[in-house]
């Protein structure tokens, strides 16, 4: 099914490859500030794509995905600073494995009870989970959440750190998008779509709903954790407040909604628009930043509930070959 999915989405894949080449060359031409903006775009877009695997495909809207950013970041940071394996690259890999592993375990443990809740109950339960983790992390001294952790520098000495993390985010973004695409075009993705449309009917058709939801949840958590770990290294120093951030959880939904919920191109498009808007245009309007975000959220839901792609994609008439963005 993967091969067939690649065939039917070949135009989107070509578009993605062109974008990838452009993004890979971009740091050569961009000023440092713009590299930072582009880095934030990659991080945001990848987060939104990872969220989409559960929220967009299966319709389980997590309001607390920052739980996995924070958990991944802190587990990796604690492991890397405690063991300090040489060389630095290996240390980072061990931290990455530990952090994403922790996210996988947490998601798998939560899956059974929490994925039985539907709609707003799931959303709120995830919000609760992220808040509990954030507060525990902040208040239990062993986790160093309030004191903060300085992460080991992993950029090689002769490489500009800004560019180094840019490429790290780019690789992580490609991985995330690839994984999400593989989910989308295979049985798992179709099963998740059936679950989103009508879970009881999906089960009646033979979709192993519990297993599929758990798989989507764990994959989404692991990818989110991976991104959180890279983000933590890019920051260099983290506290609970800098990685357990409710606005991360909210923003991924805004990106997905703005671009087009349930698609893969949508969250990327949404992230691009929002990051450019908030960093380049509204960067000077710190006072009203939250107001504008809120107003945009309201405007999207009221005016374009299907997102930008919901309007643009039919115009492109790419759907003739059966592929959706």
């Amino acid at each position: 099914m993967l091969a067939q999915g690649i065939r039917s989405h070949r135009r989107w894949i070509v578009l993605a490859l062109i974008a990838l080449v452009a993004l890979a060359l971009a740091p050569v031409f961009l000023a440092p500030f713009h590299i930072r903006v582009a880095q934030l775009f990659l991080f945001s877009a990848a987060l939104a794509v990872a969220w989409t695997i559960l929220g967009g495909f299966a319709g389980y809207w997590s309001f607390g995905h920052t739980a996995f950013i924070g958990l991944g970041a802190f587990v990796a940071a604690l492991v890397e600073t405690s063991f300090q394996i040489k060389p630095a690259g290996l240390n980072f890999v061990v931290g990455m494995l530990a952090g994403t592993g922790a996210c996988a375990v947490l998601a798998a443990l939560l899956a059974y009870p929490i994925l039985r809740l539907r709609g707003i109950y799931f959303a709120i339960a995830m919000l609760g989970v992220s808040q509990v983790l954030g507060e525990l992390n902040n208040n239990v001294d062993a986790f160093k959440g309030s004191l903060g952790i300085v992460l080991p520098q992993i950029a090689p000495a002769h490489v500009e750190p800004q560019a180094f993390y840019y490429y790290l985010f780019l690789i992580a973004g490609v991985l995330t998008l690839g994984a999400a695409f593989a989910v989308k075009v295979t049985r798992l993705g179709h099963g998740l779509l059936a679950i989103r449309e009508d879970e009881d009917t999906a089960r009646m058709l033979g979709v192993p709903t519990e297993r599929y939801k758990t798989a989507a949840f764990v994959l989404s958590a692991v990818l989110t954790g991976m991104l959180g770990i890279i983000y933590a290294h890019a920051l260099g120093y983290i506290t609970s407040g800098s990685v357990y951030r409710t606005d991360f959880s909210l923003n991924v939904m805004v990106y997905a909604l703005l671009g087009g919920i349930g698609t893969l191109a949508g969250p990327i498009l949404g992230a691009g628009i929002m990051v450019v808007l908030t960093q380049m245009v509204l960067g000077r309007l710190l006072d009203t930043h939250m107001f504008v975000t809120g107003a945009l959220l309201v405007a999207i839901v009221m005016l374009a509930p299907r997102g930008i792609l919901g309007y643009v994609a039919p115009l492109l008439r790419w759907r003739k070959d059966g592929a959706s963005p």
């Binding site: 779509l193 059936a194 449309e197 009508d198 999906a202 058709l205 033979g206 979709v207």
Partner: peptide, 28 residues
């Protein structure tokens, strides 16, 4: 397989995609 008196289609999918969903899953 079971079909319901009150039809329960996947509302946002096309007729084709609804039926394909049955073919993708259903009997192993």
């Amino acid at each position: 397989a079971r079909c319901f008196q009150i039809a329960k289609p996947f509302p946002e999918l096309s007729v084709l995609d609804n039926v394909r969903m049955g073919a993708l899953f259903g009997r192993a």
